[in-house]
Design a protein around this nucleic acid. Structure first.
Lengths: 243, 243
DNA sequence: GAATTTTTATTTGTCTGACATTTAAAAGTC
DNA sequence: GACTTTTAAATGTCAGACAAATAAAAATTC
């Protein structure tokens, strides 16, 4: 684990990369304690603040965690799905909010992914997951539900659908796609009219999953996608030209 | 943009979060310059090293970039797909290498995703992308190709297929799945025998895409998936019990 | 007056040294 | 032996300083 002494700038970035490489290569294993900041600063021949900046970079990527006190220090993190989720969500949200990605593109990706899950979910979904979906649909039909609550329930419904596939990697990737679309989705669920339609779609999906009818799930998701994209277009139109 | 003065620990994390929120909410826009470190330390009532640690956290997520000199400072980054890619790859690689995810799970996710792309790719793939795929298949059939080169070409082939869908979000998500599987994929392509089979699959896929036959692409990918999983199982078996 | 060079001010990058806080282990006490 | 106190080690934070890069302003030269 060494750094290039020729490039004087960005020492902390170089040190972070060196440690990162050591973690990825398996040189440092999960839960292993890194040398203390004082030792690292000796090892890399830099000051402690520089080492700390490097460690904070790694902490920002959830690669390490730190503990204070005797026998404390920086430890290699077991990258949890939770941590990966939140990173994925932050990244996806930024990609969309900075207009690097259009809503249509995100929507297409999201439904393509969800349809991929649906096929597996029709095979594997548990009774419990189906019950969750039913419960969410029921909640959605409650009058007086706020847009935020409706939207959250919507997300929970689709998450249960995706979790039914029993593949955490897919769940994780979909989380990013769905979360990134939330702001506009909130706008979409504003009218009671569209809520009814969305609930109808959800019921169809739940029924199809109960029957383990993957084809029916797929066609319904296709319909829901085109409906969603239409609504998003209408909302965008209305914002440009509020009649 | 404020921080809670009650929680004394992890000031840099709080400051990073405050700035991150400001970026996500749009309070700080792309290419906008943040206050100087000195100003930020005044504003948040902390020392400059603490501010710097916060900024390094954000830099690690590619949320900001810094420039030295007069009229330098920290600027909000336009989160590029490139940056998002590399983050996604790092995260996915770690998830797999730390055994949080099995190869089978990653493989299933990868092919589910790829099949989702394939349907779109059959519609939209350009002649150029098809040519890329043909060229890669041709390279793969060259004798004397190293495993690394074969594997890189394999990745390039599938990337061209996925890029054919014309959806950068899907391309980005698949990148993570594929890259994470690389180490084992390298083991798999070791024998000339499996190379031949893989090339045959690739040819089938390319032909089907040329004909814009999405069904054929799909069935071939299903076959390739089960073949890949079988090989991975064999490799794992062999490593446990090298006869 | 225009082009070039020099100076200057600003900002990040790094270092030194210090103190505060947390925490586990060691030492002491009953 | 169980409990309390002390101690040492580690991270968290601070203050102040200098180095290096860089753009704008000032001075110089033609």
């Amino acid at each position: 684990m060494k750094i290039d002494p020729k490039k004087p700038a960005d020492l902390s970035a170089q040190i972070a990369q060196a440690i990162r490489d050591a973690i990825i290569s398996g040189e440092l294993i999960v839960d292993e304690r890194l040398p203390s900041e004082a030792e690292l600063s000796e090892q890399f021949k830099v000051s402690r603040p520089t080492v700390r900046e490097a460690l904070k970079r790694l902490a920002a990527q959830s690669l390490i965690r730190t503990q204070r006190g005797a026998s404390g220090g920086a430890f290699v993190n077991r990258l949890s799905f939770e941590g990966a989720y939140s990173q994925q969500i932050t990244t996806s949200t930024l990609l969309l909010s900075m207009n690097a990605v259009s809503f249509d593109t995100a929507c297409e990706a999201r439904f393509a992914l969800e349809r991929a899950c649906a096929a597996l979910s029709a095979q594997r979904r548990t009774a419990d997951q189906l019950a969750t979906m039913r419960a969410e649909v029921h909640r959605q039909s409650q009058p007086g539900l706020t847009d935020e609550a409706f939207c959250a329930s919507d997300v929970a419904f689709h998450r249960a659908l995706v979790d039914g596939a029993g593949n955490p990697v897919l769940s994780y990737q979909l989380a990013g796609a769905v979360e990134a679309m939330q702001p506009l989705m909130n706008m979409i669920t504003f009218t009671a009219r569209s809520r009814e339609a969305i609930i109808a779609f959800h019921n169809q999906i739940a029924n199809a999953l109960e029957d383990r009818d993957s084809t029916k799930v797929d066609t319904t998701l296709v319909e829901l996608e085109s409906y969603t994209r239409q609504l998003a277009q209408d909302v965008a139109q209305q914002r440009r030209n509020p009649a």
